[in-house]
């Protein structure tokens, strides 16, 4: 990523983290996050997503490696780095007896911003929390509490926003709101990093997707490139009688033989103008093959993800 035209808003260089228990939660992660992009970090539970975010935000101290935000080292120059960062934690950590407005005001003050209730009003309205500004947090529903966490993170006008599993266990309406808010923030130039294990979420809003498992970053790719892989489909043709080899007339098609010669698999690209399916079927007839059934199968982000994680588990074994 070095030398790219875009500037790295967050730069993570060979970051490792071992907890006091000796457990190595991050095993040398390197990643540049560009200014203004939305990056989705995908990974199963325990992959190290929260640990990585905690190391960037100052909640945990990395054991090794260097992290900068906006060019400021998160340890040596923590004030400048943290001023840029808003964090929406995974857990709903809120003071139950506090009023919404006071809680949000505290966040703004902590980040060194002068009181500005007009701005906070805008934030609360955007999150449909304005009516609840004088309610105690304990009186709010789970979804509302999550909105309060977001309001707190936005209260100090961050340039980088971390959303740690923002849509885990929230209703459809809030999820859609959340995506709208993320889109608006992106339009304002805010860099957004979100973790999730919902692949559709990464698909819907991210510019780039990173896959993390067992403390290692397995892949970071433009979503478009990933979608390219996903654009590939397979046509599976079941035969009535098994064949020993791919018939000669069909050698141009890059076919694969499976199920002891009972299935022929044809990979193709759906987005091409011609998929070659019509021609293939008629050539099947010409080769004298009897078809029993036809099905198609799409390579999803989930497949890619599961494949990568399996590969890694296989390597470890």
């Amino acid at each position: 990523m070095k030398g790219s035209v875009m500037t790295a808003m967050v730069s993570i260089d060979a970051v490792g983290k071992s907890y006091a228990s000796g457990f190595e939660a991050l095993k040398g992660v390197s990643l540049d996050i560009h200014q203004g992009e939305i990056l989705a970090l995908l990974g199963p539970n325990g992959a190290g997503k929260t640990t990585l975010i905690s190391c960037i935000c100052g909640i945990s101290r990395p054991t090794r490696g260097v992290i900068t935000v906006g060019g400021h080292d998160v340890i040596d120059d923590f004030r400048a780095a943290r001023r840029l960062v808003g964090l929406v934690p995974q857990e709903i950590n809120l003071e139950p007896f506090e009023k919404v407005m006071n809680s949000v005001r505290l966040s703004r003050g902590l980040f060194g911003k002068p009181r500005n209730d007009a701005f906070l009003e805008k934030v609360l309205k955007r999150l449909s929390l304005w009516d609840k500004r004088n309610a105690r947090i304990s009186e709010l529903s789970g979804g509302m509490k999550r909105r309060v966490l977001i309001a707190k993170a936005l209260s100090h006008e961050p340039r980088v926003l971390f959303l740690d599993e923002p849509t885990a266990g929230v209703d459809v309406e809030l999820r859609r709101d959340m995506w709208d808010i993320v889109a608006q923030l992106k339009a304002d130039g805010v860099t957004i990093i979100l973790t999730t294990h919902y692949i559709e979420e990464a698909e819907a809003i991210a510019d780039r997707v990173g896959v993390i498992n067992k403390g290692e970053l397995l892949l970071v790719e433009e979503k478009a490139a990933l979608m390219n892989r996903m654009g590939r489909k397979e046509l599976r043709i079941e035969l009535s009688e098994p064949v020993a080899a791919i018939p000669e007339g069909l050698s141009d098609y890059n076919l694969r033989l499976e199920d002891d010669g009972l299935t022929l698999v044809y990979p193709y690209d759906v987005r091409k103008e011609r998929t070659g399916i019509t021609r293939l079927i008629s050539d099947f007839g010409a080769a004298g093959l009897l078809l029993r059934d036809i099905s198609t199968r799409q390579n999803s982000l989930e497949d890619i993800f599961v494949g990568l994680v399996k590969e890694q588990d296989g390597d470890a074994a």
Binding site: C57, G58, I59, R79, L87, P89, E91, N93, L110, F111
Partner: peptide, 16 residues
């Protein structure tokens, strides 16, 4: 109390 209910995350991630 902030340690117990988890709100300490905010102090640790603030520029203080």
């Amino acid at each position: 109390f902030p340690k117990f209910i988890g709100t300490i995350y905010e102090l640790l991630s603030a520029p203080v």
